[in-house]
Amino acid sequence: MATHSRLYWAFSDSLTMIARSLRHITRNFELLFLTVVLPVFLLLLFVYVFGGVIDVGSAYVDYVVPGLILMCAGYGASMTTVTVAHDMVNGIVERFRSLPIVSSAMLTGHVVASLVRNMISVTLVVAVALLIGFGPTAGPLGWLAALGMIALYILAISWAAVALGLIAKTVEGANGFSFFILFIPYLSSAFVPAESLPSWLRPIAENQPITPTVEAVRGFLMGTPLGNSVWLSFAWCGGILLISVIGGTYLFKRRTSR
């Protein structure tokens, strides 16, 4: 039993937890819906329904895809908040804790599953977008950079979702928190240019993580000016990640050692 090193088991435990969380995707209709159906539905809705009335100076599908990807990541992450909260109020966390495993392996499982789920959504959205006229100008490097930005954003927001799930005392409460994550894309340049927002909203749109991340992804894919969006996005995502990892780990310890 103890023939392997600690590191081996830490890795193996995390993999087991990841496999568990990934299985949940296929078992939970809501998760599956939010991962597969909703992103594509939103894409079609934005492009064909709102796209006709929003003027962004170019094809709306080109404008909206990066923002939509980030919004879907928000939906995906909000489910993570709920699943984490569910685990915490369920006896299963007790069982995990009486095992000789790294206690944060459970959180790792949730985060990685969230990452995988969201990357599936991203792939689907991009594939459908390409079919309906999305025409990015990026080369392979541009794609890689854009995917990197998206992955970093998803990682940060997934950890934030985990932390929110640990703050919530009930599953319903977690649902409420996740509303917060879902709402911020609307107050950014994801769907309309920041300049077109009313002046009092503009400072909010310009000082939040979605706007620089969307601008950076758009810059890499469509060749629009990047400005300082990449660095701003790094700063936002890095900050959120740092606070959420530290806060989440602390909350998990506190919640489970009463």
Binding site: R20, N28, I92, E94, R95
Partner: peptide
Amino acid sequence: SLTGQYAAVDELL
């Protein structure tokens, strides 16, 4: 090993 008062199994698995 512990079996708690309330069932601690994964409902979806």
